[in-house]
Simulated assay, not measured.
Amino acid sequence: MKKVLLAVCVMVLAAGAVPAFAESKIALVNMREVLSRCDAGAKAVGEMRGMFSARQQKLNEMKQEAMAFQEQLKGKAPEKSPKSAELEAKVRKIAEEDGQLRKDIAAEEEARLKPIVEKVTGVVRAYAQEKKLTGVQDRALFLYFDPALDITEEIIKRVNQAQ
């Protein structure tokens, strides 16, 4: 008897939820694309590339140098020789430089992109209210979606107009 009552309750609740889902309207937006393609975001990304390009180039050169050095050591005795210790030191230095570069880039992104993210969020919120949407989700979280739900281009256009 309890099972039947529970089943009836579940069916009633599910039937009540169907109209709510039927009335829901969602849209999807690619936030990463909006941030990189809107005017303010593209400018910030370009400036950050310029800020860090010399350090990135230096790090790439260090990596190539370490790889060449490693090739020279191939076939030689793997014991702890001064050359293998030198290679280990180079690899540690590269790891330190890479880690610091990543931290610096993340901090700069936070500082420069946070105001743009806030602006984009405001534009998305206004768009959702205007179109009477129930929700807007980042499309990166979906394996498949109907392309008609994607509002990325419209949001980029509105963010650029809001500047």
Rank of each mutant, 00 (worst) to 15 (best):
L6D: 08
L59D: 02
Q72E: 15
G46M: 12
S81M: 08
R92G: 07
D39L: 11
G16H: 14
R32A: 11
F21W: 15
L59Q: 04
D146L: 15
A95Y: 05
C9P: 02
A7I: 14
Q100A: 11
A15N: 06
R37T: 01
A17L: 15
E86W: 10
P78K: 09
T134L: 08
K103I: 09
A107E: 11
V18I: 12
V18T: 07
Y144D: 01
P115K: 05
L35Q: 00
A54Q: 13
D104C: 13
K119E: 12
I151F: 08
V159P: 02
P82H: 08
G75F: 10
A106Y: 13
I156C: 04
A77C: 11
K80F: 13
V159L: 05
S81N: 10
Q163E: 15
F21Y: 15
E86M: 14
E153M: 13
E110M: 08
R139G: 01
K119W: 06
K90C: 03
V124G: 01
S84D: 02
P147L: 10
D104P: 02
M1W: 14
Q161H: 08
Q100K: 15
N60I: 06
L73D: 00
V29G: 00
K83Q: 13
A106E: 12
A20K: 12
K131M: 11
E109C: 10
L73F: 05
V45F: 13
K3Y: 11
R125L: 09
E97K: 14
Y127N: 01
Q129K: 08
V124T: 00
T152A: 03
M31H: 04
E61A: 07
Q100F: 14
Q100G: 04
L73G: 01
A27L: 01
A68K: 11
M1Q: 09
R92Y: 15
D98N: 08
